[in-house]
Design a protein around this nucleic acid. Sequence first.
DNA 1: CAGGCTTTGTTCGACTGTCAAGCAAAAGCT
DNA 2: AGCTTTTGCTTGACAGTCGAACAAAGCCTG
Lengths: 394, 394
Amino acid sequence: MPGGERPKDGGASQAGAGASQAGAASQAGTSPSQTGSGPSLAGAGSVLNLIRTGDAVTRADLARRTGLARSTIAQRVDALLAHELVYEAGGSASTGGRPPTVLAFNHRAGVVLVADLGATHSRLAVSDLSATPLAEVTADMDIGEGPEHVLGWVHEQFGRLLKKAGRKPKDVRGIGLGVPGPVAFSTGQAVNPPIMPGWDGFSIPGWFAGRFDVPVFVDNDVNIMALGEHWTHWRDTEHLLFVKVGTGIGCGIVANRAIHRGAQGAAGDIGHIRVGGHDDVVCRCGNTGCLEAVAGGGALARRLREIGLDAANSRDVVRLVRSGDPRAVRMVREAGRSLGEVLAASVNFFNPAVIVIGGDLGEVHEQLLAGVREVTFMRSLPLATRDLSSVPSR
Amino acid sequence: MPGGERPKDGGASQAGAGASQAGAASQAGTSPSQTGSGPSLAGAGSVLNLIRTGDAVTRADLARRTGLARSTIAQRVDALLAHELVYEAGGSASTGGRPPTVLAFNHRAGVVLVADLGATHSRLAVSDLSATPLAEVTADMDIGEGPEHVLGWVHEQFGRLLKKAGRKPKDVRGIGLGVPGPVAFSTGQAVNPPIMPGWDGFSIPGWFAGRFDVPVFVDNDVNIMALGEHWTHWRDTEHLLFVKVGTGIGCGIVANRAIHRGAQGAAGDIGHIRVGGHDDVVCRCGNTGCLEAVAGGGALARRLREIGLDAANSRDVVRLVRSGDPRAVRMVREAGRSLGEVLAASVNFFNPAVIVIGGDLGEVHEQLLAGVREVTFMRSLPLATRDLSSVPSR
DNA sequence: CAGGCTTTGTTCGACTGTCAAGCAAAAGCT
DNA sequence: AGCTTTTGCTTGACAGTCGAACAAAGCCTG
């Protein structure tokens, strides 16, 4: 039960029936400021989830799936219907008895604003409640300009996107932001971000509080990608690693179906784990032999430049590999081996069911994964690798 | 003054009417099928926990701590009192008002049987509900004899210990077993245990089912130690690593206050992570440069033998270090560095708040921890090590 | 095609856990 | 002795859940 006011509403509107009609003042949801009225949504969240995921689409289904009484389900579904979060999508074929009513999640009941803020460019979107984008924009933007400037810009873009999607600010149900650095998720503050000057300790939800009155979620971009991948393709998997290989290397950890952030929100920072045999490579963090300095896109581009190829960043590395340049291919495959060494250790430690490779260099996953698989299967325990899949991101 | 007429103390004040007698048959816990009668214990678990841990000892305390109404607390406490899981331990000093009644967990309400099965010897105990041992026994026992033989022996020992502690089989509320290998916790089966021939897939709870009708929990011994350490000393810490350095090297992972077991129950197997610069060392797993083969107690003992010292196992290594042998000390410190290298990677990946070092070699933690700290702080990111403590087990 | 069967959805009374408010008890303080 | 403060207990109300009965809407059988 979320705290907050409890409606008193003595008898007045009671329509006779015992408890069923309930007063109209109560409401669900996490944010106590919502003003919508209607029947109580208490406990309806899990029911809504089942409908949204399509795991159970009729009332009888829901009852069987949750173990609740049919009457309870009916009550909850009524509440969801009243809030227009769900609608009846016609009947279905009978299986010998009364044909069930199919329920469907109303993904048009509102919109969500999302922004993936990279170091130098960003992607913003308005999407419906089933995560289908309604309007998108990609733009260059330097996160180093500081929170006030950047968020002001983000806010302005959100306004435009809303207009473009034909929705009003009132339709917004939530905001999600991904930033390229460690985040204290509960407060929505970046902590010690190496590439986000001026953001340390800045409360991003606080900034949005006066502008959109909805929950704001801020997280490390890798964590968001990990969660997205888990949600869309690996929903039955409990433990998953998402590895982003771009300019740098980071890792989102899904443990027990939830993001593991660690004590300081710094978990998953595998870019600075030492790789054997590369003690001559100096990393920007000051140490030597870091994975990022050995196998990161930035490092690969630099080494390709050194042998005379035209490669400014990780995307250029991808381009060269795609074009079939043998030196680039060999280098990426070797990077995959280095990554594999670190991942082998992580597999022994964490024992995930799946490793997903994403990021810029994930686009040449054939080469990268070949190296990764080669080393992980050699260096990890058989039990841990028995059912381990290493796959590219989608 | 809306008071007016209120029935105060309607005559039969106590009467303990209805349910309070409730015999001692019922019990709290997870299984919903319990048939014991008496007041409902619904939701009383959290209240019981607060009392047991001493976090809240009076009814008013409990109300403040849980945020529940005082009346609700009273009801729950009544249920616990009726079940004799809690008793009133007299009053306490007043702070200006009515002095509160102190509640105490009745750790004599039952006993728990626990067994820590090692590879070659075991520790068994009967303990009360506050984990205070009432009777203990340590004995040599080869786990390789197979489950039927070993569990038969365990069962017999449990019987003796019960008698010794003056308790009856009826008093047993639960059984906990630690085994030296990966365990599928939900089913209580060992999976692919390298040093437990004949146990693979054997259902340990199934074996006990007919003998004690109580829940049986089986887990990897390292996980149990990790949980114990977390429970006794680090209860406020969300993420913790417990590293056991004995003959081999293993690691229990506490993530989000719970054991992380991984997809196959193999998580925490850091003994076979590769350590740089030791590719000449062959491990029993077949690979080279494994941490266990470099820094495990068995490996250290072997290397001490090679230079002419008398060291058969990890305990002998401890003895030599304690006696001040400089070669043994140097070797352990060097082992600490190797361990530190692996832990540095684990810290970057997992970002725990605490690392606890235990096991045989944990007893010479000064030497071991020196090496561990040296390397972890050098090789891990500042953010992750900022508030990281590395401490010996207690 | 009527009647029976099966499955689904709805209604209704009952029960349980919770809460707020008031009352009683047991101290310290003036 | 009075007053205040803190604690514990009692009571009536309410929300969410359940089980049982009932209604609806299709198949199947004779």
